[in-house]
Structure formats: structure tokens, C-alpha cells
Simulated assay, not measured.
Amino acid sequence: MARTLTVAESQRFLAEPHIGVLCVERDGERPPLAVPVWYHYRPGGDLTFFTGTQGRTARKTALLERKRRLSFCVQRPEPPYRYVTAECTLRALDRSPSVEDVHAITSRYLPDDVARDVAVAEATGGSPTFVLFRARPDRWVSFDFADETD
């Protein structure tokens, strides 16, 4: 039988290196924008993620700046299925993120030397393209289907 994760379990699961799906409300009658992103999270802290190479002009950047709210979902796509969604308030954005902030994210997905090179190039390249976002998880929605696969 599926069960809801505790907040602590949800935080630990979000801290694992999954691909996150960022969802932000749009204006008008279109459905919310949902896009995959790399991210970093430590239990009890802020969720950080950045927009990609078109960060400064990306639709998601403009929507996040205007709406200041987002949902962020991660999942385990193979059995036993599990997902966590954090409903968040945007706390800050940084148009010139530091090497450390970018590296904290890229190192979860790339070999460390490559992750460091990406972070250094972004932070010192003269024309940053990433916008780093910090969001506070306010509410958790989760399910763990582990008992159903036994």
C-alpha cells in the first residue's frame, strides 16, 4: 500500500541527485510551464537551481521573477516508485552566480573536473548565462509505493 513520506523522508529524497521538474504558473489560459532542471538541496535548506544557456531571456526566468512561486517534483522512475513535490516560495535570484553555487549543482550530474570547468567558465566567462534561483520549500506532497512492489 502506498504511503505518504514524512517531511524528513521527503527532504532526504529531494537531496538525492534526481532530475527535477520545475513547474511555474503562466499568465492567461495556458497550463503551467513544466521543465526539467538540475538542482541542489540539503535537508532543511533552500532548493537551488539555475536556468540553462538562455537563462536571462528564458520564459521560465521571467515567470519565476513575476510569480515568485513554484512547484518542484522529483521521482524514482523505476520500482519501487517514489516521488516528492515541494511547493516553494522564491527567496532570491542571482544573475551572476559564484563558482561554488554553480559547482554545487553541476557536480551532482557531471564528473567533478567537468563540473568545475562548467562552473568556472560560467562564473568567469565575462557574460554569465545562468540565473541561479533559491527557493524555500513550504509544503510537501509525496508518495512511496515500495510496499506495493513487495
Rank of each mutant, 00 (worst) to 15 (best):
R82P: 11
R66V: 07
G125N: 02
T6Q: 05
R3G: 09
S10C: 13
E9C: 10
Y109C: 10
V99A: 00
W140S: 13
P137V: 10
D144T: 01
T129V: 12
F50Q: 10
F145H: 07
V24L: 03
H18K: 15
Y109H: 08
R26W: 07
S10N: 12
G20A: 15
L63D: 02
P137A: 01
S98W: 05
F145C: 12
P97Y: 11
S107C: 15
E25W: 02
R76P: 01
E29N: 12
V114I: 15
Y39P: 02
E148H: 11
V120D: 06
R66N: 11
G45Y: 00
G20P: 01
T129F: 07
D101A: 14
D144Y: 05
L14A: 06
V102S: 02
D147I: 09
L22I: 03
E29H: 11
T61D: 00
I105F: 00
G44E: 03
E65M: 14
T51F: 05
V114L: 11
I105G: 00
C73D: 02
Q11E: 12
R66Y: 11
P79L: 00
E87K: 12
T6G: 13
V24S: 01
T106P: 02
P97E: 14
R26E: 06
R136M: 05
D113K: 03
D138C: 13
R59V: 12
S71Q: 08
R69N: 00
G44H: 03
R91W: 00
Y39Q: 04
L64S: 05
E16P: 07
P97A: 13
R68F: 05
L22G: 09
L93H: 04
D117L: 09
D112H: 10
E100W: 03
M1V: 09
L47E: 04
G125K: 02
A86F: 04
R3P: 09
